[in-house]
Amino acid sequence: MEFNEVIRNRYACRKYDDRQVEQPVLERILDAGRIAPTSVDQQEQHITVIRSDDGLATVDALTECRYGAPVVLLVTFARNDVYTYPGGRYGSGVEDASIALTHMMLAATDAGLASCWVNAFDPDKARKAFAVPDGEEIVAMLDLGYPADDTEPSAKHAKRKSLDELVSYR
């Protein structure tokens, strides 16, 4: 798939079929997250693959937003390994992990899978449920799977603001 097709075709999938994600396909998606750029190459993101029945049941107890996906990626970052911006107020962890998440979403689309970025859960409960170490911060979960035949993007998906509304030049 051409890159423009990938970014235009990617949408938040809310219904998956029952096919499992093959290990080579999953590894290709995970590798896209691994090679994502991070501030000063800190590579502080960590990805937990959740696909066991118990793990998926735990996700279901945390959120209604799994939508039957056979794989969920829990993406965190190591709080003490981030680049701290000048002024000391902000670190790069959330954005670096978000770049990795975005790479994985686009790689999933390119591989014929669908995904949904999930942040509708209590991170403290997720931390406890998945034994996330104290030094890591949870950014999001990412559903992965093959879209069901009758699923489609939301009506809002194609409605985009114009460049004039989003971009300014100085």
Rank of each mutant, 00 (worst) to 15 (best):
K128Q: 15
T109K: 07
D18N: 12
V71W: 01
R10D: 04
R28Y: 08
D81T: 02
W117L: 14
G87A: 13
A100S: 09
N4A: 06
D124F: 07
T76V: 08
E95T: 06
L166N: 05
D110P: 12
V59D: 10
E137Y: 14
R79L: 05
A12R: 06
P37E: 05
Y16N: 09
T102N: 04
D54C: 04
I35M: 05
N119L: 14
K15M: 10
C116I: 06
L30V: 12
N119E: 11
N119K: 12
D149T: 15
V40S: 11
Q23A: 07
C116D: 13
Q23T: 06
F121W: 11
D31E: 14
G135M: 07
E152I: 08
F130P: 00
S39H: 03
D53L: 15
D81A: 15
A100I: 03
A32M: 02
P24G: 10
D124G: 09
I29C: 02
N119F: 15
L101A: 11
N80V: 03
R160N: 01
E27F: 09
A129W: 10
T151H: 13
P153Q: 01
Q20G: 06
G55T: 11
Q42F: 02
I99W: 09
L73D: 09
C65V: 03
E5R: 11
N9I: 01
S92R: 06
D110V: 11
H46W: 14
F121K: 10
S115M: 08
R127W: 13
D60S: 12
D96W: 01
E44K: 01
D41T: 00
I35D: 03
A108P: 00
D143T: 15
D164G: 02
N4G: 01
A107S: 05
P86C: 05
A140Q: 07
Y16L: 15
V167D: 02
D54G: 15
L142T: 10
F130G: 05
D96G: 04
V21H: 10
P86D: 08
T58G: 08
R14E: 14
S98L: 07
E64L: 12
V21L: 08
N80E: 06
F121P: 05
L62Q: 12
R170S: 04
I99V: 08
E95F: 15
P133Q: 08
D41S: 06
S115V: 04
P70E: 13
S154A: 14
G112K: 01
H157G: 09
G87V: 12
E165K: 00
S162P: 07
A32N: 02
L106I: 09
D122Y: 09
G91W: 08
L144P: 09
I47W: 05
T76P: 00
L144T: 01
V6E: 00
S52T: 15
Q20E: 11
L144F: 03
L30P: 13
I29D: 00
M141Q: 06
R34A: 07
E64S: 12
L144K: 04
A158E: 00
D164H: 00
C65Y: 15
Y67D: 02
E165D: 05
S92E: 04
E64N: 14
D96V: 00
S98K: 05
L56N: 12
R19H: 13
D60E: 12
I50D: 02
K161A: 03
H46D: 07
D122H: 10
E5N: 02
A148W: 04
A148M: 09
I47D: 05
